[in-house]
């Protein structure tokens, strides 16, 4: 029951993100290159999150648990990597972008970069460890 609630909440969040993104795209007008890269990361993170949800649904349908001790451990490790990525991107992200593109990131974009980069690292490292069994 707890797993099903988690899956329903996950599907709701993914749908909300996609609806918000489509409203943004409809009203954005001209989209700049930096926004395209951020939107790309959002789409990748959402796609990977949907894969994780689908995998859980598949296991529940087979009568297997949605998560076990290996996946809980994987979650903790991926969370740690996501946290490290958040700190690193908050510290070095604006500096690197200023050096490479000569562009000073405004505050709201720094927040977006931190959230998206740490989210991406979390999902990517989760799936890597999930497939490799580490």
């Amino acid at each position: 029951m707890k797993d099903k609630k988690g899956i329903l909440i996950g599907i709701g969040i993914a749908a909300a993100v996609l609806v918000t993104l489509s409203f943004y795209l409809l009203n954005a007008g001209n989209i700049e290159l930096n926004e395209i890269s951020l939107i790309g990361i959002v789409l990748i993170v959402v796609a990977l999150a949907i894969y994780m949800l689908w995998d859980k649904i598949k296991n529940i349908r087979k009568g297997l648990p949605a998560k076990d001790e290996r996946l809980i451990l994987t979650n903790y490790k991926a969370g740690l990597y996501g946290f490290i990525a958040a700190i690193m991107s908050a510290t070095f992200g604006p500096i690197i972008i200023e050096i490479l593109f000569d562009y000073e990131l405004p505050g709201h974009l720094v927040t977006a970069v931190v959230v998206l980069f740490s989210g991406f690292v979390f999902v990517a490292s989760y799936l890597y460890m999930y497939w490799k069994g580490k």
Binding site: N59, K62, L64, P65, D68, E69, R70, L71, Y130, G133
Partner: peptide, 8 residues
């Protein structure tokens, strides 16, 4: 009560 991949 674990996932198949864990056994694998």
């Amino acid at each position: 009560g674990v996932r198949r991949e864990t056994i694998l």
